[in-house]
Design a protein around this nucleic acid. Structure first.
Lengths: 148, 148
DNA sequence: TTTAGTGCAAAGGCTTTGCACACCG
DNA sequence: CGGTGTGCAAAGCCTTTGCACTAAA
């Protein structure tokens, strides 16, 4: 667990880049995001809001939406769409990786699996597309949910 | 363009399995789906509804939602979530493949790229998950949009 | 005739927006 | 102080649901 730039700094830096004032709401959001990042937890907008409201019951839902939107654009947060139509987010500033989600408990782990570069290149040629990106999610069942 | 079971039959068969009556709305939906399938077009619920309303202005939106839901469960339709939060569908009864979508014109082509089996197995072991499925989408820019 | 399937409109979630106010710098 | 960022509530989407009615078998 050694990092040149701990996640805390990354989050703070991202916030600094998308805003000019260090307000109370943003500090609170920052706090939670650090926690979520450390636990590699995924969360919904509402999760985050409910969580923050324990500290500040007057903080508005819209504020949370507004912050999340900015951080997603900045690339710090990753949006994951579940099959049931709900949207989840996770802190994902760092290196390229993908997610494996448990179909039952929705636990997420990061995995370092990806498409072979040569295959991507081949597809690019075949289709005459410039490949700019991809999204990959694995689904399965974790050991705990399997034994239940 | 030769197929033992043309897409038309596949669609009809899927409908037959999820319902008991061959109603006018379903026939209309069927028709459009065949077109969409042939053109490999992706569509939203609303696209489909608007399209059908040209033939039958009284057909209800809810009916379209209800049919799509059944066909998705049946596996005939594939749901694709775009980054902007919109949901698209495409007819996809057949073999395993993934999609490459143009970021600009949203044209979709099917590609036969996938994760290496050995890698999937390795991930399963490392994480102690039973891998049950995956979703993979490629994004890029098609030749036409690139040259504009 | 029976009842699956439909159409309509209302209700439900989630998300965005408008606007006056608060508070950071 | 000045203007960014906030809170609130209203409005907007997309989607689902309840219910009386239509029409397929």
């Amino acid at each position: 667990m050694t990092e040149a730039h701990p996640i805390e700094e990354q989050i703070r830096a991202a916030f600094d880049e998308v805003s000019q004032r260090r307000t109370r709401p943003r500090r609170l959001i920052e706090q939670r995001l650090v926690e979520f990042a450390e636990n590699e937890t995924n969360f919904t907008v509402d999760d985050l809001w409910q969580d923050i409201r324990k500290d500040d019951p007057h903080l508005g839902r819209a504020t949370v939406y507004r912050s999340i939107e900015k951080l997603v654009n900045k690339g710090l947060l990753n949006r994951v769409d579940f099959a049931d139509g709900t949207h989840h987010y996770r802190v994902c500033g760092h290196s390229h990786h993908h997610h494996l989600t448990c179909n039952q408990c929705h636990r997420v782990v990061e995995v370092d699996i990806c498409l072979p570069k040569e295959q991507l290149a081949k597809i690019g040629n075949q289709t005459d597309f410039t490949i700019e990106g991809h999204s990959l999610s694995l689904f399965g069942r974790c050991s705990e949910c399997r034994t239940e």
